[in-house]
Design a protein around this nucleic acid. Structure first.
Lengths: 220, 220
DNA sequence: GGCCCTCTCCCCCGCGCGGCGGAGGCGGAT
DNA sequence: ATCCGCCTCCGCCGCGCGGGGGAGAGGGCC
């Protein structure tokens, strides 16, 4: 083995103990070298800009600039940016999607064992061909587009009004909705009026648009 | 090093040469063991069911049952299924999304070097905590929901009609559309009528629904 | 020179829609 | 017992919308 394959790593985590633990694990490997550390997102950006590592282990939660923003900055400002592995505690963290969208090459849980950590670093370091490349980013971006936080008006709609809105989004006329709901047309008009008022829509078309944009048709 | 950490691998690829090459690469590693091969998807399912490997390298394109379906079958029928790495030639293959949705743990390009391959196998084998777990699958599923094949009517819309449809999906009235397009209201009516005819919609609301369902607002 | 498509605009007509105000019943909070 | 929210309906009115049919101008194709 000749020296050229040395993988240079930077650690970014606000907890000193975590950094120490990571350094201990990585330094035990002959082909890995921890060249720098950072305790904040901003620090991470400048450290990476200075040291030009191959891989960055980036914690999500850090004071000030968080790991996601730091990842964005690094990938945006450097022409040959390092691979970034975002680290967090829980898998179902909503940060996962943000990390992927920001361009992170990997996502690792803190409960991962030392072996997995080391191998993840090696894999990410020398693979443009790795597991999920650009594809995942488009997926994450899409996810963001689709899964916005539902507007406040959704919760304010009564059961009947939600039912009506679904039928509106089905392209039905008031008369058709009335038949399907087995009520009078006048009742439907009332519900439609309520929906329009609560959604801020001017007409049924805008209400349907609001329903789509809110992801109303996917939920409950 | 004690023997318990032996990683058992099954190769599934219809080209004999590919299997041979993969076997050569993996067998060179002391901790990897190729325990079986398969030339078709169906064969892969039965081989895996029999040999219970830790990792499967699965080609996408195979005669009969393809790698995607085979992946689905394996993950669905076994209670402790192996990790499956799907292998293909091009990164922008549409199979990527299918593979992720099917539950593959990884996606690897055939042009990946031997090193990356080996490390990917190791990583996937011993990591439930690995890069992207359940999250990616939901992303891929979402992607499938959003990205249906656009209906035929989309192409039939003229430039002006598409423009009008976008404004319809913005919730505008004919008069507002006319102002924004700097034409007369009567002209807009004509275009709207054409859009309704081509989309098969009864009114503007249904046209907007069609636009959303077709993913018309994302494209072009 | 023809033909066809597109874009532009005009007329009239019918109607579904949305805004307005009102009303009665019913159930849960206080 | 009283209030309030929800569901259920009624009338009236104005208007934007959609259907039908027609017409002229420009551009591409053969």
């Amino acid at each position: 083995m000749n020296p050229p394959a040395m993988i240079r790593v930077v650690l970014a985590d606000d907890e000193r103990m975590v950094r120490t633990a990571l350094r201990a694990i990585l330094s035990a490997e002959p082909d890995l070298e921890v060249v720098g550390e950072a305790a904040t997102g901003a620090e991470a950006v400048s450290v990476v800009r200075e040291l030009r590592p191959d891989v960055v282990l980036m914690d999500v939660r850090m004071p000030g600039t968080d790991g996601i923003r730091a990842t964005e900055r690094i990938l945006a400002t450097l022409d040959e940016p390092p691979r970034i592995i975002v680290v967090t505690t829980f898998e179902n963290d909503s940060y996962v999607y943000d990390a992927l969208r920001a361009g992170a090459s990997g996502f690792l849980l803190k409960r991962a064992d030392a072996d997995a950590l080391v191998q993840a670093v090696r894999l990410v370091a020398r693979s443009d061909s790795l597991l999920f490349p650009a594809a995942v980013r488009t997926l994450a971006t899409e996810h963001a587009r689709t899964h916005r936080a539902p507007p406040a008006w959704v919760a304010r709609l009564t059961a009947r009004e939600q039912e009506v809105l679904r039928h509106l989004a089905g392209g039905l006329t008031n008369a058709e909705i009335a038949r399907r709901m087995e009520v009078g047309p006048a009742t439907v008009k009332s519900h439609v009026a309520a929906v329009l008022a609560k959604t801020g829509a001017r007409d049924r078309t805008q209400a349907v648009i609001a329903a789509y944009e809110a992801g109303f048709l996917n939920a409950g």
